[in-house]
């Protein structure tokens, strides 16, 4: 299988600014993180809050100003789905505008073709054409997350990073969104880096899991192995907690 992403020995730290009362502090957030992601694979990244999961995503997407190590992309325009569906859509714009913008910037499609693609993508995520004229404030959390997925997929990426995409949603909506992500993976042959703190959620979607603790990868194994014979005590803890 072909690799779509290689993360090699990545270390990162945040520097908190000092002031009159506190010295400048350097906090190491990622320590020698390495993993590969293969085409068509859904890779889970789990760990407790503050373990550095979001920092990994930020480094991969180029939002982290400084890090050591190397990240090699084998695909163009990786996309991101955020946890919070309330801040990931421009409140001043309609759903149609939000979905059309990347197509316009791409510049290769005329207006009817753009419209066709928007409607097709809305249908993909279970929304009808009427939603084009809606603003994000007129949508529920689940609907917003559907629009976020549509916005990520409309540029036809091959790699999608989802940072706790269902954590802010009700359990029933969670299942629907996970189902949708799974369908989209099949339809477009996507690779996922799926970040979560919930082993149950990861189990529903992922083929393989990386377990991270305090910025260090403690386990990297196929999903069944993680559940059947977890190697690291921390993994065991997480699996126990999810039962």
């Amino acid at each position: 299988m072909n690799k779509i992403l290689e993360v090699k020995h990545v270390s990162a730290s945040y520097t908190t600014q000092g002031n009159a009362f506190a010295r400048e502090k350097v906090q190491i957030v990622l320590h020698d993180v390495s993993f590969d992601l293969y085409e068509g694979e859904a890779l889970g990244l789990v760990g407790e809050s503050g373990s550095g999961k979001t920092t990994v995503a930020r480094a991969i997407l180029g939002f982290l100003p400084r890090y050591e190590g190397e990240i090699i992309h084998h695909s163009k325009r990786p996309q991101l789905i955020f946890q919070d569906p309330y801040t990931s859509l421009n409140p001043a714009r309609t759903v149609g505008w939000i979905l059309e913008e990347p197509l316009k910037v791409y510049g290769k499609f005329d207006a009817p073709e753009r419209r066709r693609r928007i409607i097709e993508m809305l249908e993909n995520v279970g929304l009808s054409e009427e939603y084009m004229s809606r603003r994000p404030s007129e949508l529920s959390g689940g609907q917003r997350q559907r629009v976020s997925i549509a916005a990520a997929l409309i540029v036809r990426p091959r790699l999608v990073i989802a940072d706790e995409p269902v954590s802010a949603l009700d359990v029933t909506i969670q299942a629907q969104i996970l189902q949708l992500l799974d369908e989209m993976r099949e339809k477009y042959g996507l690779s996922y880096l799926f970040i979560s703190h919930d082993m149950n959620v990861v189990y529903q979607l992922c083929d393989r899991v990386i377990v991270m603790k305090k910025g260090v990868i403690v386990e990297d194994a196929p999903i069944d192995d993680i559940f059947d014979h977890p190697q690291h005590p921390y993994t065991r803890e997480l699996v126990e907690a999810s039962r």
């Binding site: 325009r77 996309q79 955020f82 990931s88 421009n90 990347p102 916005a151 990520a152």
Partner: peptide, 12 residues
């Protein structure tokens, strides 16, 4: 805000 980060990722 997140929606600006996403716009950047989309190549705007």
């Amino acid at each position: 805000l997140n929606y600006i980060s996403l716009a950047r990722l989309q190549g705007v």
